[in-house]
């Protein structure tokens, strides 16, 4: 339930299949949340939500 909600919200912010993303910053205290570059903007997300995103290095 929570996962599908998170996934929908991530998609609405441009995190959809095929996008190129880039890890830019990690917050103090263990690097959570993180800031990633998506579709030309900077987006902060928590690691627990970031786990829902499948990435492959390019």
């Amino acid at each position: 339930m929570r996962e599908s909600e998170s996934l929908a919200e991530l998609k609405r912010h441009g995190l959809i299949e095929g996008e190129t993303i880039c890890l830019r910053h990690q917050a103090p205290f263990g690097g959570d949340p993180i800031a990633i570059e998506v579709r030309g903007g900077l987006l902060a997300i928590r690691l627990s939500d970031a786990q829902l995103i499948m990435v492959e290095p390019i």
């Binding site: 929570r2 909600e5 998170s6 919200e9 991530l10 912010h13 949340p33 800031a35 903007g41 900077l42 987006l43 902060a44 997300i45 928590r46 939500d49």
Partner: peptide
């Protein structure tokens, strides 16, 4: 209750 999704835009 459990925490919600956290998404924050960092504008230029």
């Amino acid at each position: 209750g459990e925490e919600s999704v956290f998404i924050l835009e960092l504008p230029t």
